[in-house]
Amino acid sequence: MSDTMLTKAVPAALGASLRIPQTERSEPVLLFEQVSKWYGPVIGVNQVTLELRGGITGLVGANGAGKSSLLRLATGQLRPDLGVVTVRGIDAFDWRAKRLVGYCPDNDVFYEEMSGYQFVETMARLCGFTKRDARRRTDAVIELVGMEGRCDRKIRGYSKGMRQRIKLAQALLNDPALLVLDEPMSGIDPIGRQDFVELFTSLARAGKCLLISSHELEELDKLTDHVAIMARGRIAAVGTVMQIRDLLDNHPLAVRIDLPEPRSLASHLLDFPDVVGLDLHDAASAEEPGGLVVRARNPRKFLRDLGRLVVEENLDVRRLESLDDSTQAILGYLLGGR
C-alpha cells in the first residue's frame, strides 16, 4: 500500500512523537501538533505530532496505550488540553471538520428498536442530507457494505458482523476524506474480513485517508505496511514496517535462508560486518534442504549484500524469509515483549 500513500513517514527517532515533513499537497488530511490530553492526573495522549495525507495507516499499541484517545481527538470527540488537531486545516472539534470525517467506533450500541436502514438513514440526516438524498445515500452505503436485503431487520437481532457493517456504512455516508476506524475487523467472519480489506484498499486508492486501529495485526498487515505504534500515550514509531524495523538496532533482523549447502553461505556471511549471529540447520533429507537463520543489523544493507553474494557465488537459495519484520514482531520489540 505504500505506493498509494502520500505520507512519507520517516521516523526521526523512536520513542518520541514524530513529525513527518511533507510533501505533495500543502494541507494534510489529519494533523496533530504537539497534542496532549489528560484525564485528571492520567495522561492519555502525550505530545503527539502526527501528519497523515492519504492511504491507510494502522494504529497499533497495547491496551491503554492511548489509541482510542487519539482516534477520538481525530474525530473531534475530545478536545486536546494542549496542541492542535486539524482536519484539512479545520479544528477537529469544529462541526465543519466533521463533514470531512467518517468515524466507526469500536462499541456497537445503537437504538436497538430501529432497523439497520433506519439507523443509517437517521445518521444521514445528521450529516445534513435532505430526506431524498439521505435515502439515496443510505441505499448506496448499505449496498457498499453488503447489507442490502438484510438491513430491514431490527438491530436487536443483528450479529456482531452485521453491526460492524452497519457502523461502517454510517461512517461512509458523508463520503469522508478521513475515515477513522476503531477495530473494524472485530467480530467479522473470514469472508467478511476479506471484503473489508478489499473495500479499505479500494477507498485508499480512491484517495481517502484511513486511520485504522486494530488488534488484529495479521489483518492490518494485509491492509498496509504503514503503521503508527503507540505506547504510554506517545507515538513510539511511525512509518512503514520496514522503516521502523531498520531503526531497531538492538533487535537484529532474523532471516531464514534455505539452501542445500548452508555451511558454504555461512562462511561468507561471517565476513559481513552487519551479521551478529548464525544458526545452522543441516539438511534432514533430500526434499528438505538445510538452511540457516541469520541475525543482522542494518537490514537493508544486509539484504543488498546478501543478494549480491547469492549472484556472485551462484548459490541455490530455495527460500528467503524474514522472521520478525511483521507488525506483531515490531510491536513486541517496541513494547518490550508485551
Binding site: 463533514r99 450529516c127 445534513g128 442530507f129 435532505t130 438524498d133 445515500r137 448506496a140 449496498e143 457498499l144 457494505v145 453488503g146 455516508l173 458523508n174 463520503d175 469472508i191 476479506q194 471484503d195 473489508f196 478489499e198 473495500l199 484498499t201 479500494s202 477507498l203 486508492r205 480512491a206
Partner: peptide, 24 residues
C-alpha cells in the same frame, strides 16, 4: 461491497458513488 469472487488483484469500487452534492 465487492463480492468475494471478484478479482483480488484489482479491487474496484463497483457500487461506491462518492457524494457530489452540498450538505445542509
Amino acid at each position: 461491497m465487492t463480492s468475494t469472487d471478484s478479482p483480488r488483484s484489482a479491487p474496484v469500487l463497483l457500487t461506491y458513488r462518492p457524494w457530489r452534492g452540498t450538505l445542509g
